[in-house]
């Protein structure tokens, strides 16, 4: 990087609902978002007063919490346990699949877009043929019950850029790494600091691994969530990022942040493999740019509402975020665009 970078909020569009998932059409200002009103919408931010356009059909029956864009096909996942394939050109439903017995937390696609991967609170990771919707494999290394005998949750999934490895992360801080061809477990690691069980004052937990991302070369795995919280009635704890060299026993790089608190909901590595974005928040939002080698936050900016998801453009300098009552656009300025 040539200069000290800075994140600027470059746009804000209010919404009465809560937006949990987002996908941007490459090289355009068109976005798709999943909402707390159970619907999926298209936004065109290139016009002066963007209006959202609803996808048609029966749709979901609960919060739309996951989304993956495959060319002109959008696949969404919801707390209703269903995956829905949509044609983005006419915004109609193509196919639906009863995918999980419990709430779907995240939906991603493989780099070659041949597969859809979903995780849910049935503690299953499921891999689907993105063309046919056929279930290819279901697997899990995550107990349904926490060590304190409460329901666990499987929040996070990631796939490496070469498509060879999948990682899954749960509420208690357990991460499993899988061979994406054989679906055999090939590694695991633990991030117990993400599990915020309070055994004395309030006797419940609030945290968990909420985000995972492989570095571009696949050797490192970034794990996001929240750290120790004094009062787990609120998200008033340090945001917590741990970066593992998952094939070694090295101690992870730990980056905690007190200045802008809350959960790290999504992580995006930049192509240099040295920096990454983390977004999330408590009742307010944040966009952080981390220097992985230095183990620190390079720059950050706060938003007015909690951020649930992010989509990054091909230059890795413009970010669109979906959150509480709003869509926001962010720009990374004062540096050379990263090579893709």
């Amino acid at each position: 990087m040539s200069q000290t970078p800075k994140i600027e909020r470059a746009g804000e569009w209010n919404s009465k609902d809560i937006l949990f998932s987002i996908a941007a059409v490459p090289e355009t200002e068109t976005l798709f978002v999943g909402s707390s009103d159970f619907r999926v919408y298209e936004f065109d931010l290139s016009v002066e007063k963007p209006e959202r356009v609803e996808f048609t059909g029966t749709g979901h029956q609960s919060y739309v919490t996951g989304m993956a864009l495959l060319g002109k096909t959008l696949v969404t996942g919801s707390y209703d346990g269903q995956l829905i394939w949509w044609n983005t050109e006419d915004r109609t439903e193509l196919r639906r699949q009863r995918a999980h017995d419990r709430w779907i937390r995240r939906v991603i696609s493989s780099p070659d877009q041949q597969r859809i991967i979903s995780v849910a609170d049935d503690m299953q990771c499921r891999v689907w043929n993105s063309e046919s919707g056929e279930l290819l494999k279901a697997f899990s290394d995550h107990p349904e019950i926490t060590p304190h005998n409460y329901p666990s949750m499987l929040y996070a999934v990631a796939i490496s850029e070469d498509g060879q490895h999948i990682a899954t992360g749960d509420r208690t801080g357990h991460v499993a790494i899988w061979d994406a061809e054989t679906f055999e477990k090939i590694g695991e690691t633990e991030a117990p600091g993400m599990y915020t069980w309070d055994p004395k004052q309030r006797r419940h937990s609030i945290g968990g691994i909420r985000s995972l991302a492989f570095s571009p070369d696949g050797t490192q795995l970034a794990v996001g969530g929240i750290g120790k919280i004094g009062n787990i009635d609120h998200l008033g704890g340090q945001s917590r990022l741990e970066i593992f060299r998952w094939e070694s026993d090295d101690e992870p790089v730990l980056i905690e942040d007190e200045s802008k608190k809350g959960l790290i909901e999504q992580i995006v590595w930049r192509p240099d493999g040295k920096t990454l974005f983390g977004v999330g928040g408590d009742h307010k939002g944040f966009v952080n740019l981390y220097d992985v080698e230095k183990g620190e936050i390079l720059t950050q900016e706060g938003g007015s509402g909690h951020i649930h998801a992010v989509s990054v453009d091909s230059s890795f300098t413009t970010l669109f975020t979906a959150g509480h009552n709003q869509i926001e656009r962010w720009r990374l300025v004062d540096e050379e665009p990263a090579a893709s």
Partner: peptide, 21 residues
């Protein structure tokens, strides 16, 4: 007494946890 249900943050996660009990 079963404390503590004061879910100012993450209400749905808290209730998923405590309602099961």
């Amino acid at each position: 007494a079963r404390a503590w249900w004061d879910s100012h943050g993450q209400n749905f996660e808290t209730h998923r946890e405590l309602c099961a009990d």
